[in-house]
Design a protein around this nucleic acid. Structure first.
Lengths: 181, 181
DNA sequence: GTCTATAAAGCGATAGAC
DNA sequence: GTCTATCGCTTTATAGAC
């Protein structure tokens, strides 16, 4: 039922999706939905928490590991791709949230904490000398994870490209770039 | 008045923004708004057309130029960044559209045409030998412009980073990557 | 646990006065 | 060109029967 709601939130947008839409997609009435959840907002909050828990997990795990910052950054990128694929619906919803309610503001706050952790990892890798120092590290961080996050808009796990291949492509493009040699 | 509406569409989302919200932000009543536009949908359509016209322009112009495909791709990336900055509101709205009405479906159709032109330019540059051939060109194209498009979510033209610097950083990251030497 | 019925509020859009 | 007033509809959410 959460997954039915999230699918509709993504297809039509949260505000354009009514409780009745969710009920109809489950072949029940509105009242049956309200028996299981107290509000539409609660469904959103549960999905956002799923995404944030998974991202927190992936980032903390990879960022706190041993080894050079550049290697940990590469691991974070790969782990992030895996989370975006495994929890694509929840993460897609998270990335579309813009602070339009208390629930959304709380989610944005948690997301900013993650973004700051990623930015400081990029900064560390630059100071280490493993990443180029001629470009603003905070801008690089935003562009890097903007690229990673954008894949929720088009990637479909059942297609030709495996998650493994995708993670490799993302990391290769990010670190070595498009150009040959 | 279009810009007031677009600002609200971005802050609250299209569906969550009522005509009354737009009217209040202009210190007038709903009826005054309806004197100038025939529907809420028309406001959306005008903003989406602005974004699509500008992107069409930038891509056609740079993609049809002379020289190697890899150079034309670099030009398209730079020109895209310029358009995203100069028409940030309209483009932000375009990137958040998901086909929830006839207007949105028409905008998505035009956007897909642009995306296809970009993808074939990337393919051309790979065949030319200027871009690495070990990664799927269509995936590279999506990731590249996913990165470019993501900047509408955070870049503010009045900050420390100039549009020029931003375009340089985006192109450098895309073509040469994060890693040193 | 699901239903019908309904309350209370907000929505897009229009009519008509000034 | 802006106003007040209102129509017709949809929304979230609840009450109460089965």
């Amino acid at each position: 039922m959460l997954s039915a709601a999230v699918a509709l939130f993504i297809r039509k947008g949260y505000d354009a999706t009514s409780i009745d839409d969710i009920a109809k997609s489950l072949n029940v009435t509105k009242s049956a939905v309200y028996h299981h959840v107290t509000s539409k907002d609660q469904l959103l909050a549960e999905a956002l928490d799923e995404a944030l828990d998974e991202l927190d997990n992936a980032v903390d795990e990879a960022a706190r590991g041993a080894g050079p910052a550049s290697q940990r950054l590469r691991d974070v990128v790969r782990r992030s791709v895996e989370v975006l694929v495994a929890h694509q619906s929840a993460v897609t919803l998270l990335l579309r949230v813009h602070g339009n309610s208390e629930t959304e503001l709380a989610a944005l706050k948690r997301r900013r904490r993650i973004d700051r952790a990623l930015a400081s990892l990029v900064n560390e890798a630059v100071e280490e000398g493993a990443l180029r120092g001629d470009l603003d590290p905070d801008v690089l961080s935003r562009l890097l994870f903007g690229m990673v996050n954008s894949l929720v808009e088009w990637y479909r796990p059942n297609g030709e490209i495996s998650t493994e291949q995708l993670a490799t492509t993302v990391a290769a493009l990010a670190f070595e770039g498009l150009a040959t040699g």
